[in-house]
Structure formats: structure tokens, C-alpha cells
Design a protein around this nucleic acid. Structure first.
Lengths: 198, 198
DNA sequence: GACAGAATAGTACGGTCGTACTATTCTTGT
DNA sequence: ACAAGAATAGTACGACCGTACTATTCTGTC
């Protein structure tokens, strides 16, 4: 059997864990609450992970895979250059907009929570966000090499700005619940890219 | 006596509470931990507030006053128009940069934490962020009326973008601890304002 | 300087947390 | 079908949580 029963259960636990984590936090998410949410016993659920930290790490890993599937992979089918930058940003915003996680972007939520808590969980979150930013920066460089964007601009700064718009729409939507911010972000990104055409 | 002993103690409790809240969160911040941090007894500290929610509300109020003193008030001395917009953004970034709170902007941190938790604490945080954004938007409108910024641009969208840059620098600094992001944000804001000159 | 009331401390309680440890039920390969 | 082992449940424990209630100490006023 390719997928054992334990792995299936484990996956459904992590699905619930990631969802709850974006709404209530990765730490307030208690074993008991999660057991209740999945209809399991506390100890039966706990046995899959061995410690709360392992559960948190596995949850981050699960969310990372989902992020890649929702944002990175789809954009990889777009041609290199401007088209791929746009696809990355558009999918990033769409991933917040469609509420892939009920509390918005998993990494935006958990990075604020684990900012000041050293440990493997924080490290993994930081690494994931770092790799998103550098992937975006790399896409900008490709567009510059293709002659689609001003080669004198700093790719790092452009990536910083595009990400800032997407992040702001996620944060403000979670607070104000007004989907207009997603349009604001998309327009800001398009205008910024327009302004960088050679 | 203008300031009774109780009020002085209460203030020093709130100062510690706001600091810890940005690092660990407003909810994980327990009465016992806070009592330990301030050298008081649990019950002695608790008596000042009556409930944990009241403590949280008072902490938010304290942080709001500090934010106004650090960001809004200084910018009010700058002349209306572009200068004031810049002063607002610059002080906003400086307030994160100088670590007025050890965990960065208080409202960025707590808004993610209370996003999905209805109640007066969430309401107060939302109101504070809303008022910051509308104050910034108002400053943009004044600059437009003064003929310093393109009057056809949407003031709301411009405020969205400027805030996005400042927020991104706060978030990324907390994660990566590289102060360069503050320069990135300031440059992004200046360039954006430049590009909107009539 | 004593008295009233504010400020602080002490103690106790029920609840939930993470996590051992043991017992039971279910899956799966033969 | 049955043994072996994986998966799940049951129970217990110490720690800390928020909060009541009571006792003590301190402050400011006459």
C-alpha cells in the first residue's frame, strides 16, 4: 500500500492544524483542541508526533507544500520574464483571497507569532519566506535579462515592493474583510511593473 | 496629588505588558509572567485590572498613546502636503527601526494575533489601524489639494502603497534582522512620491 | 500621628496544558 | 485466518493558567 492508514490520518490532522493555526496561532493550537476538531483522542493524535514542537514543524511543512502547490508551481508554467513575475504575484494574492487557509497567508500569520521565539519552527518559517522572496527576486532578474524590465533597477528592491503590496492586501483583508484591497494590490503591482518597462 | 501611586504602578505594568506583547503576543502574556517581570505578586498586579481582557485593552490603549506620540504628533509639526506625508512614513519606519517596542510595531504584531478573535480587543486594534490609514490618506489628499501630487490618483490607493512599504520593512526586519529593509522602504516611498509629482 | 482607604500580597480552586505510561482495537502481509 | 505490529484510546501527573476571596501593608488627609 502506497499510503498507510497512519499517514492518511496524519495528513488530515495536519490539514486541520494548519487551518486552525492561521486563525488562532500555531502555539495556542493545543493538542486537546486539535483532537476535538479531528474527532480523535488526545493521546491517539499525540502519538503521531511525539511532541508539540514536532507537530508544529510538521504543520509548517504541510503549509509550505500547500503554498508551493498554490503559488510557485502554477507560476512556473508561465514564460520567464514579466509574465512569470505577474503570475507569482497574482497567485500569491489569489492564495490569500481564496482563503486557502481560513486566516489568510499561513506564513504571514506564523512569522509574526514566531518572530521572537528562537527554535526550529521559527527557523523553518524564516527559511520559507526567505526562499519566496529570493524566488521573486530571481524572476525579476530574468525579466531584466530578457529586456522586459529596466536593468538598472535593483531586483531586490523591486521584489521587496511587489511582496509588500501582496502582504498588505492579506493583512488588511484579515482585519477589515473588504476584498477591495486585493484589487488595490493587483493594481499597485501592475503599475509598478509598467513603470519599470525600458 | 496629580498622579497617585496606583496609577504610577499601573503605567509601569502597562509599559512592560506592551513590550512583552510585541515579543510573545498579547494572549500568551500571562498574569504570572507579567507579575514576575515587574516584580509584583500575581494578585497585586491583577487587582489593577480585574480581568485579563481589561489588561489587554489597557495595554492596547497604552500602545496607541505611544504610537501617537512617536508617529502622529511629530508629523503634525511638518507642513501640510508632501512634507507631512513623508514625515508620517519616515516616523512610522523609525518607530519600528528604533525598536520603540522590542518586537517591532505593536499593532502589526497584535493585529495578526487578534485577526480572527472577535471582541473588544480586536475592535480596538482594528480601529487604531483604520485611523492610521485614514490619517495617511487624508495627508495625501492635502498634498493633492496643494498641487504637490497628481490629483487624479486615488488617495486611498497611494496610502495603501506607502503603508505597505513601511509594514513590509517592519515585518522583514523582525524576521531577518537586516536593517537594510528600512532603507528599502524609505527609498520605495520616496520614489513613489516622486513619481506622483504633477 | 492616627485613621480610612488604596495598594499589594497570600492562598486556594477548577480548568487546561503537554506528555508519560498502559491498554485496547484495527490493518496488513502471509 | 491469524499473528505481529501499527494505530488509537484511556488514564494519570505536575505545571501553569485566570480569578475569587482574605489578609496585610502602605499612602495620603485631617
Amino acid at each position: 500500500m502506497l499510503e498507510t492508514k497512519g499517514q492518511r490520518t496524519r495528513n488530515s490532522i495536519l490539514e486541520a492544524a494548519a487551518a486552525v493555526a492561521t486563525e488562532e496561532g500555531l502555539d495556542p493550537l493545543s493538542i486537546g483542541r486539535l483532537a476535538e476538531a479531528t474527532g480523535m483522542s488526545k493521546s491517539g493524535l499525540f502519538a503521531h508526533f511525539g511532541s508539540k514542537e514536532e507537530l508544529q514543524l510538521a504543520t509548517v511543512e504541510y503549509a509550505a507544500a500547500l503554498f508551493v502547490a498554490e503559488v510557485i508551481d502554477p507560476a512556473r508554467t508561465a514564460p520567464k520574464g514579466l509574465a512569470r513575475i505577474w503570475s507569482l504575484c497574482d497567485h500569491m494574492i489569489g492564495y490569500a483571497e481564496r482563503q486557502v487557509f481560513p486566516g489568510g497567508c499561513f506564513f504571514a500569520a506564523t512569522s509574526f507569532e514566531f518572530n521572537n521565539r528562537p527554535g526550529p519552527v521559527r527557523d523553518r518559517i524564516e527559511e520559507m519566506i526567505r526562499s519566496w522572496l529570493s524566488y521573486l527576486e530571481h524572476a525579476v532578474e530574468q525579466a531584466q535579462e530578457a529586456g522586459e524590465l529596466d536593468p538598472n533597477a535593483s531586483a531586490r528592491e523591486i521584489a521587496f515592493q511587489l511582496d509588500a503590496f501582496a502582504q498588505a492586501s492579506n493583512a488588511q483583508y484579515q482585519l477589515f474583510r473588504d476584498p477591495q484591497v486585493f484589487d488595490d494590490a493587483r493594481r499597485a503591482i501592475q503599475e509598478r511593473l509598467e513603470s519599470l518597462r525600458p
